[in-house]
Structures are given as structure tokens and as C-alpha cells.
């Protein structure tokens, strides 16, 4: 009896169920397609990004050397060795110094140039192009040009100094100035990039705010900057600072080709240390430990940036 009722209910429910199955198979087919479409990307992501990321952390806990037949887990020994190594601390200190010089320099100059360009109508696109040019040009090629400009004997810089009656200097060969010379190149290259971000920020400030400020009595350019431009630009500025810091942490090209970290480690930076340990001495484990330190710095900066980047400009 109860069976019969159940059977009846089943019969009654059948068309509805079939309909549901149809709908389901429609989306199921589509979700199958979704997996197929995303699969290549996800596999490559696992292979080239997430796997290696886990790998670099794991590797930092081993004594693996490229070409060695075997390796063993050695816990935090690589880190102990690293923290005991004078070169690591020099490298970290130099990297932080590089960041501490290039970030304020490139951000302030980028902002200044953007404000100057935006303050008048003439030649805007010409200026923008010129200041952006260093961002475009292959850094390695331009680094070599800078090297020649800084040449102690035949370089343009010393030549100009001599013409002005000043003493020349071996900029890249002196441990006192090598890192600062690289900073100058870094600022030269990054200013245009920051300028473009600031210009985009400036353009998006509603024009009516300047009119309102004018009516409200902000008569000088400076007071309008304080009342409108600077606060409206604050999110962009934080963002640009974070980006510049991340990019500066990654400094490598100029160091590798111009100073090799020298003279006497005075321009040694983290990625260069990682490069020499990992790819010149093939001490993969130790190199991985250096990478992890680098990663910790950059990831915290990146997280900071994406938090700031997600923060909407407070105009609804």
C-alpha cells in the first residue's frame, strides 16, 4: 500500500524531475566546458607559479645543489647560515637603502612632473612622451649608456664636472658611490612611470572641485593644491609608493651588468645575491632561502598595495 503511494508520487514527480535533470545537464555540460576552458591555465599556473612557490620554500629547507645526486632536509640551517653571513646583511641593507632612495626620489619627481605638465596646456603630450621614454627603452642597453656616461675618464658626467672646474669621480668603481649611482639610474628610469600614474590621477579629479575651491576663497595655487589636489591624489600616491617600492626591491639588471654587486659588495642587493648563490654557485637551497626573505618583503608590500588599491576613491 505504502509502496503504491510511493510509486504514484514518483510518477507524479517524474516530469518535474526530468525537467530538473534537463536543466542540470544543461549547466553540467556548461560547467564541464568551464573546466575544459580553464584547465590549461590552471595546470600551467600550478606548474609554473604555485608549485615553484611551494618549491622555493621547501628548497630553502634542504641542502640541494644543482646536479647533486641527492639532498637532505636540513631544517633552518640555510637560514642560520644566511643570518650569520655578513654578505647577506650587506645585501639586505643595500636593498633597503636603494628602496629608501629610489622610492621617494622617483615618487616626488613623478608627482612634480605630473603637476607641472597638468598646470598648463602647452606641449603636454610632448613632455609626457619624453619623460616616459626611459620606461620604454631596454634598461640593460640604457644601463650600458649610463656606464659610459659615468666613465671616469671619457664620460660625460666627469667631463661636465671638469668643465665646471670640479674634480671627476669613479662613480661606479668607488664603493662609496656605486650604490648611489645605481639609485640615480633607478630614479631616471622610474620617474616617467610614476608620472603617468599621477597624470591619470590628476585627470580624474573633477574640475568642478577646483571651481568650488576658487569660489570658496582658495586663491593661491598652493591652497588649491592643499584643499583639492593633494587629498584627492592621496590614494594614487599610496599606490604609486607601494608599486615603486616593489619594483625597487626587484633591482637586478643594472647591478648585474654594471657593478656585479661590487666594489667589495657595496652594491650587492638581494636578487643579485640570490642570482649568484642560485645560478652561479648552484647552491639552490641557500639561494632559495634568500628568495624567501625577498618574497616576504615583496609580498607584504604587494598585499599592502592591493589593500590600498582596492580602496575606492572616497567619492561615491
Amino acid at each position: 500500500m505504502s509502496d503504491a503511494v510511493a510509486a504514484l508520487q514518483e510518477v507524479a514527480a517524474a516530469p518535474r524531475m526530468r525537467a530538473r535533470i534537463l536543466v542540470k545537464s544543461g549547466t553540467a555540460g556548461r560547467s564541464g566546458a568551464a573546466y575544459a576552458l580553464a584547465a590549461p591555465a590552471l595546470i600551467l599556473m600550478l606548474m609554473m607559479l604555485l608549485g615553484p612557490l611551494a618549491g622555493v620554500i621547501a628548497l630553502s629547507l634542504t641542502d640541494y645543489q644543482l646536479g647533486a645526486p641527492s639532498f637532505s632536509w636540513i631544517g633552518l640551517s640555510n637560514y642560520q647560515e644566511m643570518f650569520a653571513d655578513r654578505v647577506f646583511w650587506i645585501s639586505l641593507k643595500n636593498t633597503l637603502a636603494y628602496v629608501a632612495i629610489v622610492v621617494p626620489g622617483a615618487v616626488a619627481l613623478g608627482l612634480g612632473v605630473a603637476l607641472l605638465i597638468q598646470s598648463g596646456a602647452g606641449l603636454r603630450s610632448l613632455y609626457r612622451t619624453v619623460y616616459f621614454l626611459p620606461v620604454m627603452a631596454t634598461l640593460i642597453a640604457m644601463a650600458i649608456v649610463w656606464e659610459f656616461m659615468l666613465h671616469p675618464q671619457f664620460g660625460l658626467v666627469n667631463g661636465l664636472l671638469r668643465a665646471a672646474g670640479l674634480q671627476g669621480h669613479s662613480w661606479l668603481q668607488d664603493r662609496g658611490t656605486a650604490l648611489y649611482s645605481l639609485c640615480v639610474i633607478g630614479i631616471w628610469q622610474a620617474t616617467g612611470f610614476n608620472m603617468v600614474l599621477f597624470l591619470a590621477g590628476l585627470v580624474s579629479i573633477p574640475k568642478h572641485l577646483y571651481d568650488a575651491a576658487e569660489i570658496d576663497g582658495a586663491e593661491s595655487a598652493w591652497s588649491r593644491f592643499g584643499l583639492v589636489t593633494w587629498p584627492m591624489l592621496a590614494p594614487v600616491t599610496l599606490f604609486v609608493v607601494a608599486i615603486s617600492a616593489i619594483r625597487s626591491f626587484q633591482v637586478f639588471d643594472t647591478v648585474q651588468v654594471l657593478t656585479k654587486g661590487g666594489p667589495s659588495k657595496s652594491s650587492e642587493v638581494l636578487i643579485y645575491t640570490m642570482y649568484t648563490e642560485g645560478f652561479e654557485f648552484f647552491r639552490s637551497g641557500y639561494g632559495a632561502a634568500v628568495t624567501v626573505v625577498f618574497l616576504a618583503f615583496v609580498l607584504s608590500l604587494t598585499l599592502l598595495k592591493s589593500v590600498l588599491g582596492r580602496r575606492e576613491v572616497h567619492y561615491a
Binding site: 549547466t27 556548461r30 560547467s31 566546458a33 568551464a34 573546466y35 576552458l37 580553464a38 590552471l42 599556473m45 609554473m48 607559479l49 604555485l50 608549485g51 615553484p52 612557490l53 618549491g55 622555493v56 628548497l59 644543482l66 616593489i246 626591491f249 626587484q250 637586478f252 636578487i271 640570490m274 642560485g278 645560478f279 639552490s284 639561494g287 632559495a288 628568495t291 625577498f294 618574497l295 615583496v298 609580498l299 604587494t302 598585499l303 592591493s306
Partner: peptide, 30 residues
Amino acid sequence: LRFLGRDVLFALVVFCILIPPQATAIPVFL
């Protein structure tokens, strides 16, 4: 498209954006 785990997988994609290319150099090289 809708599929199971989409949001988790996309969060992974976003996370991967944060990885600087130098960080994975050694394992990828190996």
C-alpha cells in the same frame, strides 16, 4: 560560467599575481 570551485580558483589566480617573477626562478629553473 558557473562551476564548482570557481571563486576559490579565481582567488588563487589573484594570489598568483602577487608572486614576483624572481621568486620562482630557482624551482622553475630546476
